[in-house]
């Protein structure tokens, strides 16, 4: 998510000299309105969520019996939930947790998947065979069962959030590993990789300096899509009660109130805001992902 929005677009006198492929992609991305609006929305959500303690001073942990299930008003913008907690405030704090889980999981998954995939793809042969067997094993693991079992084992012993992040990451890198491997397999056929070996680059250098940077566009596009699915995973698990510990607000935890029929039918202000913000966030991430994909595609000039 490091898209600098420097105003490069205004300089268009002559065909720009010496633009790195990255600069060209950035220019194309900046011109994509939908992607830029989505990115803007995501930045706002992220900034407001992470600055929650400065945005609102309401205590989210205090249960206020006198203010249970209030409708939206000027005092409580989005009303209060069944424990009398301000929904808007919880939405902000929940965003913090949901985004944090999403970002950390994406980070670990991408790093792990890239390491495994690039080593397997570059070396090939037995190493590739072994690593891909293991990847298949991970991919076929019953995800939900494992999350529930591990969650129960570590419940109370470790920080619930950390357990969730570790478990999701450890079980999700398989897809990235496969995609990176196939990209590396194709990319390493290029003569510049042979050249890199012949000028004395070590395997680590060939992978890190020549191969990964050249498949980075794919990795970045994948990580945006992955980021969206990680947020869905958090919400889904929390909704089912196996995700973020219930005392910590998260979008998924807030959504789980909708399991109660009276909330679902009569108190939409409690569950509609988290549902809406999750949907919008996922949509935006996907639009950004599509925009990046387009920007990196050399065939789609401007």
């Amino acid at each position: 998510m490091q898209i600098s929005t420097s105003p490069q677009t205004s300089v268009q006198v002559k065909p720009m000299k010496s633009m790195s492929p990255w600069a060209i992609a950035r220019r194309k991305f900046v011109k994509n309105k939908l992607a830029m609006i989505s990115l803007f929305y995501l930045i706002i959500v992220a900034v407001v969520s992470f600055l929650a303690p400065y945005v609102t001073t309401i205590d989210i942990t205090r249960i206020n019996i006198g203010e249970m299930s209030l409708k939206p008003s000027s005092e409580h913008w989005l009303g209060t939930d069944k424990s009398g907690r301000d929904v808007f405030t919880r939405l902000l704090y929940g965003g913090r947790v949901s985004l944090l889980v999403g970002i950390s999981c994406t980070f670990f998954v991408v790093v792990l998947g890239t390491i495994v995939g690039s080593i397997a793809g570059y070396f090939g042969g037995k190493i590739d065979n072994m690593m891909m067997r293991f990847t298949d094993f991970i991919l076929n693991f019953p995800f939900l069962v494992f999350v529930i079992v591990l969650g129960t084992i570590f419940f109370g012993k470790l920080n619930g959030l950390a357990v969730l992040i570790i478990v999701i990451s450890a079980l999700s890198w398989g897809g990235v590993a496969r995609i990176v491997r196939s990209k590396i397999l194709a990319e390493k056929e290029n003569e510049y990789i042979l050249a890199a070996v012949s000028i004395g680059c070590s395997p680590i250098k060939v992978i890190g300096k020549h191969l990964i940077p050249n498949v980075l566009s794919t990795i970045i596009v994948q990580s945006t899509l992955l980021f969206a699915s990680m947020i869905v995973a958090e919400s889904g698990l929390s909704y089912l009660g196996f995700g973020v510990p219930s005392e910590i607000p998260s979008w998924g935890n807030m959504l789980s109130f909708a399991r109660e029929p009276d909330v679902l039918q009569g108190k939409p202000w409690i569950w509609v805001p988290p549902a809406l913000i999750i949907t919008l966030t996922i949509l935006s991430i996907n639009f950004v992902g599509e925009g990046l994909k387009d920007a990196f595609n050399p065939r789609s000039r401007r």
Binding site: W22, Y192, L194, N214
Partner: peptide, 9 residues
């Protein structure tokens, strides 16, 4: 190959 033998980035 003058195209594939130079790292594009």
């Amino acid at each position: 190959d003058p195209y594939a033998s130079l790292n594009p980035i």
